[in-house]
């Protein structure tokens, strides 16, 4: 995972994504290409309804592209798999019928890659890393939002996926917890150097969390720009560089297209409606 290779870890080429609502066929993204390299904190940023979550779900293997191809670590993405772990926005992703430890162990056992004792050791060290060692025997309903998020990250990290896919993971948190979680994510990245793909609609979050920022245009999502942002963190919020970058992103997002199109509500994806 940490090996630096010449070819990109995640290679998205000309991906067009469409999904069906009961009445319409909606095009979410149109011919999007991007390359994520190992160790990137790659942020996909765009206004509501630009298909950024759909793009992430396609990389996760939940949606098949109508056109183009997605290759992760040399393998074409065809179905969901534990080499691309998703961390979702909602807190329901933890299984309420399993303790924290069991939750972290579960994907390792389900994937069949590890023995039970080995899975347990890995889970324990992952829980330790996110600072929840004291809570390993507790059920998720007793945890706070931020703690659940840390369990979700520990669960994803313990499996050592090629890439971590995060779909607005902090959007449902309050501002203070969100900032703390962003800092924790960065600290974790500093010590583990995983590759993460991160979807957000907050410019500030994109600059703080991301090392590369892909900006999508609204409805359907098309590539607008890709910027470098690795040097800036919360410590730089008041610096002119931060302000300039933020302003630049803002203008890329909103200036050309009129504001109303950016404000169209994001249609809820109905993945459950397509039986497999």
């Amino acid at each position: 995972m940490t090996r630096i290779e010449a070819r990109p870890l995640v290679d998205v080429r000309d991906v067009t994504l469409q999904y069906k609502t009961p009445e319409h066929l909606v095009t979410a993204t149109y011919k999007v290409s991007c390359q994520v390299e190992a160790g990137d904190r790659y942020v996909i940023l765009g206004p509501s309804g630009c298909g950024k979550s759909t793009l992430l779900k396609a990389i996760g293997g939940f949606i098949k592209p109508v056109g183009g191809s997605i290759v992760v670590n040399g393998r074409e993405v065809r179905e969901p798999g534990p080499d691309r772990m998703m961390v979702f926005q909602e807190f329901e992703q933890l299984m309420p019928w399993k303790t924290v430890l069991q939750n972290v162990m579960f994907p390792m056992l389900a994937a069949g890659k590890y023995l039970r004792s080995e899975a347990r050791d890995r889970a324990l060290s992952a829980i330790e890393k996110v600072g929840l060692a004291k809570f390993k025997g507790v059920y998720p309903h007793m945890l706070s939002g931020g703690m659940k998020m840390r369990v979700a990250i520990a669960r994803a990290m313990a499996l050592e996926p090629d890439v971590l896919l995060m779909d607005e993971p902090f959007a449902a948190l309050d501002a203070l917890t969100r900032r703390k979680m962003q800092e924790e994510l960065l600290a974790l990245w500093d010590s583990l150097r995983f590759t993460v793909l991160f979807v957000t609609h907050s410019i500030e979050e994109a600059i703080v969390v991301g090392s590369r920022i892909l900006i999508l245009s609204p409805h359907p999502g098309r590539v607008r720009a890709e910027l470098e942002a690795g040097a800036l963190s919360y410590a730089d919020v008041d610096t002119p560089e931060f302000g300039a970058l933020s302003k630049r992103i803002h203008s890329l997002l909103f200036e050309e297209h009129a504001a109303p199109s950016a404000l169209t509500p994001e249609p809820k994806l109905q993945l459950a409606a397509t039986p497999r």
Binding site: K57, G60, F62, E79, P80, G81, P82, R84, M85, M86, F88, Q89, E90, E92, Q93, M95, P96, W97, F106, P107, A110, A111, L271, A272
Partner: peptide, 24 residues
């Protein structure tokens, strides 16, 4: 979300029903 994470672990068919749907 729970369905998606179940499928994310590569669970399918009867294992998916038994390990995700029934307890949930």
């Amino acid at each position: 979300t729970l369905r998606l994470s179940g499928r994310n672990y590569g669970l399918k068919g009867i294992r998916y029903v038994a390990l995700i749907l029934i307890p949930a």
